[in-house]
Computed example of a mutant assay.
Amino acid sequence: MSIGNSPEADRPSVGAALQKARIGAGLTVEEVSTTTRVRIPIVHAIEQDDFSRCGGDVYARGHIRALARAVSLDPRPLIDQFDAEHGGRPAPTPAAPLFEAERIRSEPRRPNWTAAMVAAIVAVVGFVGFTLFTGGGKSGGGPVAAGDANAKPAPAPTRHPSTIKPPLKPEPSDSAVAGLPKDKVTIKVTARDGQSWISAKDANGKLLEDGLLKKGESKTITDKERIDLVLGNAGAVQLYVNGKEVKRVGNKGTVERLSYTRGDPQAG
């Protein structure tokens, strides 16, 4: 007596399902790579069910989600199948063993000398005016005599417009962009609306940063040529590249792969 194959045995693998959907949609690997920002060798590897080049299960799930959406597939069954074949989804890893994230420190408040000088000038002018007013009332020859109730105060002397000097305009301060080194790529990542996984490599593939960024924490990364950045939960991240804010990084829960050089971004 023979037993038929189960539905699970007939179900295609994750990579085969993605490849079949891509071919059915009439898309090339290059077109899918451009849409998802997943590199071409990684797309080929995933379609062969080789997830070793993804950099870990967290990033593999993000790549599967991005590729499935690009070929109009529901990513949830594919991710569930991936978890079932790779031991399930692991518990979140604490951030402390991975790296000590750089926290934003507020600058100490400096004394407001301008306000103090203005207050001192106002006090001196008030004292002089009070002295002149009281001295003129005692002499009896001032504009307001003690016995003359109908006397009107003398009009204030007018000044010719040519003698009035316009207020000095403050010199513009150097911007934060001008303070950054021109010969390096500088990226600052802040987990503004929730925690995020970040991974950064240089142009040669050397790992610069890798770990979990908790909500409210930030990390600054620099390199001489290029930084290849992977962001998990990209919608919760605030990203500055060379001093300019990237307005839209991605959606919450998605993984974004970005690459920046010294001239980026073209529009902050």
Score class of each variant (00 low, 15 high):
residue 39 R to P: 01
residue 39 R to W: 01
residue 40 I to Q: 12
residue 40 I to F: 01
residue 41 P to R: 08
residue 43 V to Q: 02
residue 44 H to M: 00
residue 45 A to L: 03
residue 47 E to D: 03
residue 48 Q to I: 00
residue 49 D to A: 06
residue 50 D to Q: 07
residue 52 S to F: 01
residue 53 R to T: 09
residue 53 R to F: 03
residue 53 R to A: 13
residue 54 C to S: 09
residue 54 C to V: 03
residue 54 C to E: 02
residue 54 C to A: 08
residue 56 G to H: 05
residue 57 D to W: 02
residue 58 V to D: 12
residue 58 V to M: 04
residue 58 V to P: 00
residue 59 Y to E: 07
residue 60 A to D: 04
residue 63 H to K: 10
residue 64 I to V: 15
residue 65 R to S: 14
residue 67 L to F: 10
residue 68 A to T: 07
residue 70 A to R: 04
residue 71 V to A: 08
residue 71 V to I: 12
residue 71 V to H: 06
residue 73 L to R: 11
residue 75 P to H: 09
residue 76 R to Y: 07
residue 76 R to G: 10
residue 77 P to R: 11
residue 77 P to Q: 10
residue 77 P to A: 10
residue 79 I to Q: 06
residue 81 Q to L: 13
residue 81 Q to H: 11
residue 81 Q to A: 15
residue 82 F to C: 01
residue 83 D to S: 03
residue 83 D to Y: 04
residue 85 E to D: 14
residue 87 G to S: 03
residue 87 G to V: 02
residue 90 P to N: 02
residue 91 A to I: 01
residue 93 T to A: 08
residue 94 P to R: 11
residue 95 A to I: 02
residue 95 A to D: 03
residue 97 P to K: 05
residue 97 P to E: 03
residue 101 A to F: 05
residue 102 E to S: 14
residue 102 E to R: 13
residue 103 R to M: 07
residue 104 I to G: 14
residue 106 S to Y: 12
residue 106 S to G: 10
residue 107 E to W: 07
residue 108 P to A: 15
residue 110 R to Y: 05
residue 110 R to G: 09
residue 111 P to D: 12
residue 112 N to K: 09
residue 112 N to D: 15
residue 113 W to Y: 14
residue 113 W to A: 11
residue 113 W to M: 12
residue 113 W to I: 14
residue 114 T to S: 09
residue 116 A to Q: 13
residue 116 A to N: 04
residue 119 A to G: 08
residue 119 A to T: 11
residue 119 A to H: 01
residue 119 A to Q: 04
residue 120 A to T: 11
residue 121 I to C: 08
residue 123 A to D: 00
residue 124 V to I: 15
residue 125 V to D: 01
residue 127 F to W: 06
residue 129 G to Y: 01
residue 129 G to E: 02
residue 131 T to M: 13
residue 132 L to I: 15
residue 132 L to M: 14
residue 132 L to F: 10
residue 134 T to D: 11
residue 135 G to E: 09
residue 136 G to F: 13
residue 140 G to C: 09
residue 142 G to M: 05
residue 142 G to W: 08
residue 142 G to S: 07
residue 144 V to Y: 09
residue 146 A to H: 12
residue 146 A to S: 14
residue 147 G to T: 11
residue 148 D to G: 02
residue 148 D to W: 10
residue 148 D to K: 15
residue 148 D to P: 00
residue 148 D to E: 13
residue 149 A to E: 13
residue 150 N to M: 07
residue 150 N to Q: 10
residue 152 K to F: 04
residue 152 K to H: 06
residue 153 P to F: 06
residue 155 P to W: 00
residue 155 P to H: 06
residue 156 A to G: 04
residue 157 P to D: 06
residue 157 P to V: 09
residue 160 H to A: 14
residue 160 H to T: 05
